[in-house]
Amino acid sequence: MASLGDQIANFFSGSDDDTREGLHGLFIDELKGIYYAEKQAVDALGEQADASTTDEVRNAFLTHQEETRGQVARLEQVFQSIGVDADDKTCAAIDGLVDDAQTVVSNTESGSLTRDAGLIIAGQKIEHHEIAAYGSAVTLAKVLGYSEAAQLLHQTLEEEKNTDKKLTQLAESFINQRAALEDGNTPSDSDENRYSTDTNTVNPDGSRYSDSSTITGYGSSNDTISGGSRTL
C-alpha cells in the first residue's frame, strides 16, 4: 500500500483517480450543504429584519437578504459550471444557528437595543459558518481544477467576510454600548466618552454621526455609493 506522501504525490500528478473521485464527491456534498444554508438564510434574514428594533439593524439584514438571494443564484452557476444539477442537503449547523437566532427573539424584549445586539451576534455566527464553508469549497474547487467554480465561490466568500465586518462595525458603533445602558449598567468614568448617548457619537473609523444618522455601509435608501462605500 502506498504511503500517504505517495498518495498525495500521485493525486497532484493526476494519477490517483480514487482520491480525485473522493474529493469530487466531497466537493458536491459541500456545495449541497451551502446551497441549503443559503436558502435557509434568506428566510432567516427576513425574520431577523422584522424582529429588529432600529432601522440600522433592520436595513443591515434586508441588505444582506438581497445579497444572499444573489449568492443562491451564484451557487446555481457553480453547479452548472461543473456539470451537476443544483441540489441541496440538510445542514444541521445552519438549522441550529437559525434556531439560536429565533431564541434570541424569544428571550429579548421587543423594541429593545438588547434584542438588536443579540440579533447581530446571531447573524455573525451564521456568517462565520458560511465563511468557513465557502473557504473550504474554494480550496476544493482549486484542487480539483474547477477554476470557474473557484472564482464564483471566492466572490461570495468575500461578500460574507464584508458582511461580517459591517455587522461588527454596527455593533461596536452603538448597539452594544447602548444596550448595556438600557440594561441599567452604569459605565465607569474611563468609559464615559465611549458610552456617551449624546448626539455626537464616534464611529469605529473615527468619524462622528448623530443619533438620527445611519451607519456606514448600511445606510438608508437615500445614501449614495462612492468608490464601493456608502456616503451620507
Rank of each mutant, 00 (worst) to 15 (best):
N193K: 11
Q77N: 15
T114S: 06
K89N: 09
Q169N: 14
D85S: 09
T168S: 10
T90M: 13
Q124T: 06
T163Q: 13
L119C: 05
A141T: 01
S173K: 02
S112G: 05
L119S: 02
G83A: 10
Q80L: 09
E182K: 03
E130S: 13
T139A: 15
K89E: 15
N193D: 12
L113P: 05
A133E: 15
N107P: 01
D88Y: 01
L144F: 06
H129R: 02
V84F: 02
E160P: 08
A117M: 06
N107K: 11
D164K: 02
Q169T: 10
E148I: 05
H129P: 00
I94Q: 05
S110N: 08
P187G: 02
T139M: 14
Q177L: 04
P187N: 02
T108P: 04
N185E: 03
L153P: 13
L97T: 05
N107C: 06
L97D: 11
D164C: 11
L153H: 15
Y134K: 12
K89H: 05
N162M: 04
H154M: 15
A150W: 09
Y134I: 04
G135Y: 08
A171I: 02
D95L: 12
V143T: 10
A92H: 06
A137N: 07
S81K: 05
G118L: 11
N176H: 11
T108E: 02
D189C: 05
D100Y: 15
D116V: 04
L157W: 15
A86G: 05
L170H: 01
E159Y: 07
E148G: 00
I131T: 08
I94A: 08
C91P: 05
T156W: 02
K161M: 08
A180I: 15
A137Y: 00
G111T: 03
I126C: 06
A179E: 04
E109A: 10
K125P: 01
Q151W: 00
L181Y: 03
G145W: 00
Q151S: 09
T163P: 01
Q124M: 12
K161N: 11
G83V: 09
H154F: 14
L167Q: 14
K161T: 10
C91Q: 02
I82F: 08
I175S: 06
F79N: 03
T114E: 05
G118E: 06
S106G: 04
D85E: 14
A93P: 00
D183R: 08
H128Y: 13
G135V: 11
G111L: 04
Q177G: 01
G135T: 12
N107A: 13
S188G: 08
E109R: 07
L144I: 09
S188I: 01
K125Y: 11
A93I: 14
L181E: 09
L140S: 02
D191Y: 04
D95S: 09
E109N: 07
G96W: 00
Y134D: 10
D88H: 06
L97F: 12
S81R: 11
A93M: 13
L97S: 12
E159T: 12
S112L: 07
I131Y: 14
I82Q: 05
K166R: 04
I94P: 03
L167G: 03
S112K: 03
K165Q: 13
I94R: 08
D189R: 06
Q102P: 00
S136I: 11
E148N: 10
E192K: 14
N193Y: 03
T168C: 08
T114D: 00
D88C: 02
V143P: 00
N107Y: 10
L140W: 11
L144W: 12
L140E: 12
